[in-house]
Design a protein around this nucleic acid. Structure first.
Lengths: 231, 231
DNA sequence: CGGAAACTGTGATAGAAATCACAGACACGG
DNA sequence: CCGTGTCTGTGATTTCTATCACAGTTTCCG
């Protein structure tokens, strides 16, 4: 349950930040840097993949294409996020397609390097467990919301989770979403038709819970937004 | 994606089985046995909880009550399953309510004991990571299915996942669900209204994909069931 | 700068699923 | 063994959401 916002700066789904110094330096030391242009794909669902990535800057989306061709977004991830850890851990194919929403800087860590690092440093294991636990909670919440919350509630929920990972909290308590996102992606996250996402967003704008500053969304009343999300 | 069935006997969401001998014995040694009567609740969502449980025998369900009072089942778990590991890992409240569907025998492991064990035995960490990774994949699949698959497909999917964790594969390839489950619980797992679950189940019975032996369901044609689940 | 492509807003309609309303079957506890 | 409560099946109706159909707006690239 999304009880409160944890904006990007004090976000704990953030592997790099919460590691002890030594491990952090080791992490960087054994990894290989990598750049991704906007719209470029890091890997596709179904690919077999070695290793995981740490997002240093930029924004990516994790998406799955359903049988019927619909794109469903599982998450939008910002700086500090760990990417591709599932395949690393269980040796199954990539579970989602990762593509860049803007230019990104990443570090790539091979599977061997990851486990070498982790075995030498149990904190890495604990941190990875924590990260997965958090993602699993989020996924479970989404499952429940899908089945019980209306379209407008799910759209509100989507903004809440965007703010959670990528929001920039202003001194006055409002939260700015620091990157451009289309209604299509919002609809894909909420699991609704694009047209209905549009209607729901406009309702939020009209009610003043949300506003648009240029092409960026700004959450005016975070508390009300959470309330509408019915979480 | 649920490519094939892994019936209970060779189920890998099974912490106890996949641990090396030494750790397994240590696990049992430091844990406290516990019995649960049918319908009894192990813990409620929102409780603060110390430690996790290993299900030795019996069946439990993990459920969340949504704001509107609807019960949504996240999983039905059988022998070998690890329960309550999320709160153990991240110190947040229990994410779901666990209640027994029949008499259960469990082992309780405190948080301190778990981490002592794991620090001494990195295999435990790896195994726990694998388990969470698997659950996360499953949850993500469910999210996608919720948004793109019809009611009848989701009911088929529910039977597939029940078979996955709890099915008993017969020599002839059919899969018997070894415990009594109500339409209400099936509806709760599929995220549909009970009445519609009833209709979908009867369609499956009519098509011969499924049959009922007494009050137990029997999956007659597993391959067709997976196909209808559109996974 | 200018035109094409992508994105957004909004009404109208169609379709799927929830809800309502029962009746019959079962099961199990006194 | 018999009644009471729980579970199941099925029609009718209502509600929500997707889909269709466009027009108006940006954006961005050549």
């Amino acid at each position: 349950m999304l009880r409160k916002f944890q904006t990007a700066t004090h976000n704990s789904g953030n592997l790099a930040k919460d590691l002890p110094w030594g491990a952090r330096r080791a992490f960087v030391a054994v990894s290989r840097p990598l750049e991704l242009a906007s719209r470029e794909v890091l890997f596709h669902a179904g690919d077999s993949g070695d290793g995981c990535y740490l997002l240093r800057s930029g924004v990516v989306k994790a998406a799955v294409i359903a049988r019927d061709g619909q794109e469903r977004l599982l998450a939008v991830l910002g700086p500090g996020a760990l990417i591709g850890e599932l395949a690393l851990i269980d040796d199954e194919p990539r579970s989602a397609t990762i593509s860049a929403l803007k230019t990104c800087q990443l570090l790539h860590l091979t599977k061997a390097a990851f486990f070498r690092l982790a075995d030498a440093n149990p904190q890495v294991y604990r941190q990875a467990l924590k990260l997965l636990a958090q993602r699993l909670r989020g996924a479970n919440d989404t499952v429940v919301a899908q089945g019980t919350v209306s379209v407008s509630g799910r759209v509100a929920r989507t903004f809440a989770s965007l703010a959670d990972g990528l929001g920039d909290e202003q001194p006055d308590g409002r939260i700015l979403l620091t990157y451009k996102i289309t209604q299509n992606d919002i609809a894909g996250m909420a699991g609704v038709a694009r047209e209905n996402a549009s209607r729901a967003i406009n309702d939020l704008l009209r009610e003043g819970v949300l506003s648009r500053a240029g092409s960026f969304y700004l959450i005016e009343r975070p508390a009300d937004l959470l309330d509408m999300a019915e979480i």
